[in-house]
Simulated scan of single mutants.
Amino acid sequence: MSWQRRIDSALEQRRATDSFRVRLANQQGSARYLVQDGTRYLNFSSNDYLGVSQHAEVITAWQQGAEIYGVGSGGSGHVTGYNEAHQQFEQQLAAWLGFPRALLFISGFAANQAVIAALAEKTDSIIADKLSHASLLEAAMHSPAQLRRFAHNDVASLQTLLAQQTDGEQLVITEGVFSMDGDAAPLAEIAQATRYVGGLLMVDDAHGIGVIGSEGRGSCYQQQVQPDILVVTFGKAFGVSGAAVLCSEPMANYLLQFARHLIYSTAMPPAQAYALSAALDVVRRNESRRVQLQANIARFRKGAEQLPLKLMASQTAIQPLIVGENQIAVNLAATLREQGFWLTAIRPPTVPAGTARLRVTLTASHTSDDIDSLLEALYDATR
Rank of each mutant, 00 (worst) to 15 (best):
P186T: 05
G199C: 04
G182L: 04
L162G: 04
L187W: 08
M202T: 00
V177F: 12
L201I: 12
I212N: 10
S143G: 06
A118I: 01
A134R: 12
E138P: 00
Q192R: 11
Q222W: 08
H133D: 15
Q170M: 10
D154G: 07
V225H: 04
G199R: 06
V172T: 06
M141H: 14
R148D: 13
P144H: 09
V197K: 04
G213F: 02
Q159D: 11
P227C: 11
R149G: 03
T123K: 14
T194I: 01
E175A: 15
D228P: 07
G216A: 06
G218A: 07
Y221M: 06
Q222P: 06
A188T: 11
D129Y: 05
E215H: 15
M141L: 15
D204A: 14
V225D: 01
S132Q: 13
Q192E: 04
G218N: 07
L119N: 12
C220L: 13
L201F: 00
L147V: 07
I127H: 13
T166H: 14
G208L: 08
A206V: 15
A134C: 07
A191G: 00
V203Y: 08
H142G: 11
Q226S: 13
D124Y: 00
I190L: 01
D183G: 08
L162S: 05
L137V: 05
D228V: 13
A145H: 04
I209G: 05
D228Y: 06
E121Q: 07
N153D: 11
P227Q: 04
Q222F: 13
V155G: 14
F178R: 06
L187R: 02
L161N: 01
I190P: 00
S143R: 05
V203A: 00
P186V: 09
I126T: 08
F178N: 14
D167L: 05
I126S: 05
S125W: 15
R148M: 12
A206D: 08
A145Y: 02
G216P: 08
T166S: 15
F150E: 08
T194D: 00
Q223F: 07
Q170S: 14
S219K: 06
G216M: 10
F178W: 09
Q165F: 00
V172C: 07
G216S: 14
R149K: 09
Q170I: 13
Q223V: 09
L131V: 09
G210A: 14
A188P: 01
